[in-house]
Amino acid sequence: MIDFFSQPTNLWFVVIAFLTLIASLGVVAGEKVMHLALNLGGSFAGVAALFVLLQSPFLAIAQVLIYVGAILVMILFGLMLTGAHATEPTGVETGKKVTVATAVIVLTALTIWGVYGSAGRWPVVPSGLDTSLTALGQALYGHWGVAFEAASTLLLAALVGAIVVSRREDDEA
C-alpha cells in the first residue's frame, strides 16, 4: 500500500477520482437544482484532470472549454429560465429508488469484476502514444476528415433545430 502511494501518479489518481466521485454523487443526491449544476461543474473538472493524468492535455483543455465553459453555462441559463429555486422532492418513490440502485450497483459490480477478472491481460504501462496537437490534428483532418465534416453538419443542424424549437410562436410572420 505504501508502495502504491509512493508514485505521484497513483496518488493523484486516487485524489482526483475521489473528488470526481464526490461531486458526481452530489449531482445525484442533492436537493436544490442549482447546487446540482455546481456539483456537475466539479465532476467535469475532475474528468478534465483525469485527461491530464492520461497525457491528453488537449482533450483536457477542450473538456474545460466545452463542458465547463459552454454546456454548464447553458444548463445554468436553462435553470434560471425555468425556475432556479426548483428543488428535488426527497423521501418519495423509495421503492423505485431502491430498485434502480440495486440494478445499477449489480451492473457496475459485474463490470468491475469483468475488468479485474481479465486484469492480467490488460496493459499496465501507458503506450507512450504521441498525443501532441500535431498528431491529433493530422488524424482528425486526415483519416477522420469525412466524419469531422459530418460532425460539424450535425452541430449546425442541432443548433438551428434548437433555435426553431425555442422560438416563440407569435414571432412567426
Binding site: S56, L59, A70, L129, S152, L154, A158
Partner: peptide
C-alpha cells in the same frame, strides 16, 4: 492512452460535439 491508438482521442472530440448538440436541443 494504454492501447497505443490515437483513434480513441478522436472519438472523444466527436463525443464532445454530440454532447453539445444534446445539451442545446
Amino acid at each position: 492512452s494504454f492501447g497505443g491508438s490515437i483513434d480513441g482521442q478522436i472519438f472523444v472530440i466527436f463525443s464532445l460535439v454530440v454532447a453539445a448538440c444534446e445539451a442545446a436541443t
